[in-house]
């Protein structure tokens, strides 16, 4: 199927992009296009205008500033995958990115696009939750920062409003006690996960503190498992696994039943907890 007709505008600047978006309520931002274009090709998405931000080179940089690593919205997955700064300062991302789709998709797909789309089974939203990242949004009223915990609102729903452009992601540089874990279960390499888990914590005494467990593929959005986090902080893995029954509300679909997802979430928690432990 071919897309329905739409107009195309190439943004010359961020202000230009925002002005274009302002002028057409059903306009969509075209970044990497790796999720948007399939939706266009199925006529599931029929915007009147695409605002192409790929020319905004200032959004394509990875930089370190003020105790943060900042990843521009247009940074491609492949670029992040190869980035030594990310490997050093946000190793959770380096661990997660190879699970995103396939090489040709990672060459084109962007960090910002993945976050802005907020697919419930995607890796990066969960990683941002686990890392406590800040998401920078630029709109007609200026620039604001939204905590990852506040950003993902529901199924493909985010804190982005009309006319907003996601411009960057900021992640605090971790201390030496920080630990990370990541695992996902996908039927085939590169598929969206049946269940995935991105996790972070801090070694504290003999155990873990500040545990953040972000599951994906088991709800309408990437989700923190807060009771399980508390149980893990108190050193009780079995209780953490049991707590997932309260924390998560997995769904059934053609790929797995809710019961399977629920079971797999527990399996992943044990595996990821071992990663957090083994890296102490």
């Amino acid at each position: 199927m071919k897309p329905a007709p739409f107009a195309y505008a190439k943004a010359r600047s961020l202000d230009h992009a925002i002005a274009l978006l302002d002028g057409a309520p059903d306009a969509r931002v075209l970044a990497g296009g790796q999720s948007l274009v399939p939706a266009l090709n199925m006529r599931l998405s029929t915007p009147s205008l695409l605002v192409d931000i790929n020319g905004l080179r200032e959004l394509g940089e990875i930089s370190r500033r003020n105790g943060h690593i900042e990843i521009g919205a247009l940074v491609r997955h492949a670029q992040a995958e190869r980035s030594s700064a990310i490997a050093q300062l946000a190793p959770l991302l380096t661990q997660a990115i190879p699970h995103i789709a396939h090489p040709a998709i990672r060459n084109r797909g962007t960090f910002g696009g993945s976050i802005a789309l907020a697919d419930p089974a995607a890796e990066l939203p969960a990683c941002l939750l686990a890392l406590g990242a800040e998401i920078e949004v630029t709109g007609r009223t200026g620039r604001r920062s939204v905590a990852a915990d506040e950003f993902f609102k529901g199924l493909f729903e985010t804190a982005l409003g009309p006319g907003d452009v996601l411009t960057a992601i900021r992640i605090a540089v971790p201390g030496s006690a920080a630990r990370f874990g990541f695992a996902e279960l996908a039927r085939r390499h590169g598929d969206y996960a049946l269940v995935g888990l991105a996790a972070a914590g801090t070694v504290h005494g003999g155990g873990l503190a500040d545990v953040r467990l972000a599951f994906f593929g088991v709800g309408d959005r990437a989700t923190r498992a807060r009771q399980a986090e508390a149980a893990l902080e108190s050193g009780n893995l079995d209780a953490a696994v049991a707590a997932l029954q309260h924390d998560l509300s997995p769904h059934s679909d053609v790929h797995a039943s809710a019961a399977t997802r629920s079971h797999l979430a527990g399996v992943l928690l044990r595996r990821v907890a071992a990663q957090l432990d083994s890296s102490t």
Partner: peptide, 14 residues
């Protein structure tokens, strides 16, 4: 770099 030809618009290739 390799890309999916079906996920890029011709107009983007200017």
């Amino acid at each position: 770099t390799i890309v999916r030809g079906c996920l890029m618009l011709a107009v983007q290739c200017d």
